[in-house]
Simulated assay, not measured.
Amino acid sequence: MNGESKDEGTQSTQSTQDTAEAAARRSRFGTLPEPVRLADTVEERPATRPDPARDAYDPDEWLVRYCL
């Protein structure tokens, strides 16, 4: 009999602990976070800064440099 009452006390303590853990888990993870809109997941910005020297390329310059 003594062993049975000891087990019952352990089970009630364990169930109280489980209930407290479940309540804490439910309060933390009980609801899903708000959905994130697809537009909020994309950031658009240029890969490099605009370079005026690059835009001033003359396609015929290589003829002058290498063929003459």
Rank of each mutant, 00 (worst) to 15 (best):
P46H: 08
E34L: 03
A47N: 02
R37L: 13
E8V: 10
R49Y: 09
L68P: 02
T31F: 13
R25I: 11
P33Q: 09
A22I: 12
S15V: 08
E21I: 07
A20W: 13
G3C: 10
W62D: 13
A39G: 05
P59R: 03
E21K: 14
Q14D: 05
E34G: 05
A22F: 15
R25W: 14
D40S: 11
P46I: 09
F29C: 15
D7C: 11
R49L: 12
R37N: 11
Q14Y: 04
R65E: 00
P35C: 03
D58K: 00
E4W: 14
D58G: 02
T31A: 15
R65L: 04
D7V: 12
A24E: 14
E4I: 07
R26Q: 14
A56M: 00
F29M: 15
P33Y: 09
A56C: 01
R37C: 13
C67N: 07
Q14H: 07
T41A: 08
R25M: 12
F29W: 13
P46Y: 14
L38P: 02
G9Q: 14
T10L: 10
A22N: 12
T16H: 11
R49I: 06
R49Q: 12
S5I: 15
Y66L: 03
T31N: 15
T48Q: 09
S15H: 10
P59V: 01
P59Y: 01
R49A: 13
P52G: 02
G3V: 08
P35G: 06
A22Q: 14
D7I: 12
P59D: 03
R45H: 13
E8F: 14
S5P: 13
P46K: 05
D60R: 03
R54G: 00
R28S: 07
T19E: 14
D58F: 01
T31M: 15
G3N: 09
Q14E: 05
S5W: 14
S15I: 08
S12N: 09
Y57G: 04
A20V: 04
